[in-house]
Design a protein around this nucleic acid. Structure first.
Length: 501
RNA sequence: GGCGCGUUGGUGUAGUCGGCUAACACGCCGCCCUCUCAAGGCGGAGACCACGGGUUCGAGUCCCGUACGCGCUACCA
């Protein structure tokens, strides 16, 4: 049997990293098993669903490298009629019933509280009887009759009084739940008979031939209800695999409202992450390859190593700080990105640097023409200590533009430190102009000779030059910097920097 | 309240059938390298494996209980 999985986001906002991980796991599983990966947009909540959100989710997935859906994207709202039919069929078969109880008022804000309240009072009594509904055993004829006369009704699944549901979760193992714990869940709302979530999901999954439902652990308990629906519909129950949740540092659920942009996938794109790096990081949140405990994995390795057995049962904490800008997101994600930046194949990095420079207005066509070699060498040189793509236009700006900022701390440390530099820098500029041939060795020799002649330490000139040429106090080996910045520009910047001493 | 799920250093994890002086990565500290900062190399601090019982010659690993956390419990998705 071919594996068929789906990622089913509701388009009510941007792509949350937790959802992104769910998508990734589905995709890895499908691709690893030679199965099909499908996408279904769960847009039944018309109030909150937006096309904008759908587009942004698709974009986010594409950025992660997931855009190869094997079939047309399914929009759940278009299947409402089918869902309704399924529920009505269950009524006819006596597996569901019409509930003529007037619809109760309920606001989103206090549901949780209300549930707890109701449960508390109920527990003081004889316990909740989930089968107490007076319409549960109405004859089909009477039910039909009342419906035809226009009386509004909801449709509820008739959950049997005894026994229990059981399924084996690929991650959490065997799950059982007494039927007495499950109420007769509503399938269709009274009034417009619009389908509810649990019904829609099941009918669509059956329709789409889904064999493995891989989703967040928040659905684990409700799965029993869905199993009941599968059984009522006479369909085969798929394999379920629930994923542990991703929590904030205080162990609360990661949410947009409380945690802001760190939870949005697009943030990582916008802040210069390498897709493969973030994908690699995400894969490790709630899953590990086991035994070998490997962390840096190519896509091929990820595909061959990924398994549902390797998924964890405990929630993972996404570790970041909202007060320390350096830790705006999980440090390991940052580290992993830096790792990719400095060690991924240069030819794959170059196009990313190009688009970063483009958006910063620093790109020049020559970088792909006569200066292609220079560009590659420069990127390769500076990437060694960069963390994100943003650094190429930030810290790396001086390599691509003549207008760049001087870091005040660097100026203080390397230029203002010694007044002699006011006169040494122009002198060094002359030597640099005279270097022949223009090689790392002769540049170094020129500088060191000059330092000897003037009786100063080479380090003084080297550090001053670094700030003069790049505006910064840190960077690659200085002779490489001279080489890459070039003879003319170097000399010009050395002279200009004398003014800052 | 009920039901479910979880609990290995700050974080992510490894730890097959019980033998661990508890391993790896990130982060942190120090040393080396050195023109700076990274990277890299070496070393260090940090976990009585939530707690309490039990089974056993022996438990992070098995069983029970407790605590804590999370989830679900809706005519939301």
């Amino acid at each position: 049997m071919t594996v068929r999985v789906r990622f089913a986001p509701s388009p009510t906002g941007y792509l949350h990293i937790g959802s992104a991980r769910t998508a990734l796991f589905n995709w890895l599983y499908a691709r690893g098993q030679g199965g099909r990966f499908l996408l279904r947009v769960e847009d039944t909540d018309l109030q909150r669903s937006t096309e904008e959100s759908t587009r942004s989710i698709l974009e986010g997935l594409a950025w992660l490298g997931i855009s190869d859906y094997d079939e047309e994207i399914v929009f759940q709202s278009r299947n409402a009629e089918e869902h309704r039919e399924a529920a009505l069929r269950l009524v006819r078969e006596g597996k569901a019933y019409r509930d003529f109880t007037p619809k109760g008022e309920r606001t989103d804000a206090n549901v949780k509280q209300e549930i707890a309240e109701r449960a508390r009072t109920a527990s003081e009594g004889p316990g909740t009887d989930h089968r107490a509904n007076p319409y549960r055993d109405l004859t089909l004829e009477e039910s039909e009759h009342r419906a035809e006369s226009g009386e509004p009704f909801a449709v509820r699944l008739k959950v049997s009084t005894e026994g229990q549901t059981r399924f084996v979760d690929a991650v959490y193992g065997e799950q059982t739940r007494d039927h007495s714990e499950i109420e007769d869940l509503v399938l269709l709302r009274s009034g417009d008979l619009s389908p509810l979530y649990n019904l829609s999901v099941v009918v669509d999954d059956i329709e789409m031939g889904i064999t493995h439902v891989i989703r967040g652990q928040d659905h684990l308990t409700n799965t029993h209800k869905q199993v009941l629906i599968y059984e009522a519909l006479g369909a085969q129950v798929p394999t379920f695999a629930h994923l542990p949740l991703i929590l904030a540092p205080n162990k609360a659920k990661l949410s947009k409202r409380k945690h802001g942009e760190v939870v949005s996938l697009t943030t990582y794109r916008d802040r210069g992450f390498i897709p493969a790096a973030f994908r690699n990081y995400l894969a490790l949140l709630g899953w590990s390859p086991g035994e070998e405990n490997k962390e840096l994995m190519s896509l091929e390795e990820l595909l061959s190593l990924f398994s549902l057995e390797g998924v964890h049962r405990s929630n993972a904490v996404f570790n970041f700080s909202d007060t320390d800008a350096r830790q705006w997101t999980d440090q390991k994600a940052l580290w992993m990105n830096a790792e990719y930046v400095r060690s991924m194949p240069l030819e794959e990095l170059l196009p990313m640097v190009k688009s970063e420079l483009e958006s910063a207005g620093l790109w020049r066509p020559e970088y792909e023409g006569e200066q292609a070699q220079w560009f590659a060498r420069t990127v390769n040189l500076i990437r060694q200590r960069f963390i994100t793509l943003k650094d190429f236009s930030g810290q790396g700006r001086a390599y691509f533009a003549d207008e760049f900022e001087f870091d005040p701390a660097a100026v203080a440390k390397n230029l203002k430190k010694d007044a002699a530099l006011r006169e040494l820098l122009p002198g060094l500029a002359e030597r640099v102009e005279a270097v022949e041939p223009w090689t790392l060795e002769s540049i170094e020799k020129a500088l060191r000779d000059f330092a000897d002649e003037r009786g100063v330490k080479a380090g003084l000139l080297i550090n001053a030059s670094r700030t003069a040429l790049t505006g910064q106090s840190v960077g690659p080996s200085m002779f490489d910097v001279f080489d890459v910045v070039g003879r003319e520009r170097s000399a010009r910047r050395l002279r200009a920097a004398a003014e800052l001493v």
